[in-house]
């Protein structure tokens, strides 16, 4: 679900407590399930172990919520790679596309460039699916049509997202 990358995105504005990260996440995605505290701290712990975030302050005597985390340069690179890469088109990939798009806009990334690459990636996948030769399995055309129809729906949403973003950019 890309929670780790979203946490990096939330820290890109500056160092923060786990609690701020959780609140930030829930504000970015008001319609999704709130991020559990437990998950925030496990994720921050894993990111620290991997050198993507570092602890810059730990008020003595406090619990884990007193710890302040900051993005490392390795973490920043990881985030920017993630924001640049299109999501592999598959069932349910649109959710992650939305997460990346919101994170890109919130962190000042190149949202239009990401959307263009994501469009290309979806279009390529549709072509692949359509060029797959028929086999004997009677369910495979059904599955393929299902996937193509959903990728097409994603693409229509990507289209309007692109238009909306360019409008906002144009009028700013």
């Amino acid at each position: 679900m890309a929670t780790a990358e979203l946490v990096l995105g939330l820290l890109s504005a500056g160092p923060a407590h786990g609690y701020d990260v959780k609140r930030g996440h829930d504000a970015w995605f008001p319609d999704s399930r709130p991020l559990a505290f437990g998950q925030v701290y496990t994720t921050l712990g894993r990111l620290e172990r991997d050198g993507l975030v570092e602890v810059i302050d730990k008020t003595s005597g406090g619990g884990p919520d007193r710890t302040i985390y900051a993005l490392t340069s390795k973490g920043r690179d990881h985030l920017s790679d993630w924001l640049n890469d299109p999501v592999p088109p598959a069932w349910g990939s649109a959710d992650e596309v939305l997460r990346k798009l919101v994170a890109a806009i919130r962190t000042g990334g190149d949202a239009a460039g990401f959307l263009a690459r994501q469009r290309a990636s979806h279009l390529r996948r549709i072509r692949e699916l359509r060029e797959t030769p028929a086999d004997d399995d009677p369910t495979s055309p059904l599955v393929r049509e299902y996937v193509v129809a959903h990728l097409d729906a994603d693409l229509r949403w990507l289209d309007s997202a692109l238009d909306r973003i360019s409008e906002q950019r144009g009028t700013r």
Binding site: A112, A116, R119, A120, H122, L123, R124, I126, R127, R130, V148, D152, L155, R156, D159, L162, D163, S166, G170
Partner: peptide
């Protein structure tokens, strides 16, 4: 989009320019 998917390249226009 299903037609666009068969192309080698997509050129997207916006307001008379290549976006």
């Amino acid at each position: 989009n299903l037609v666009a998917a068969s192309a080698n390249r997509e050129i997207r226009l916006r307001d008379g320019l290549i976006q």
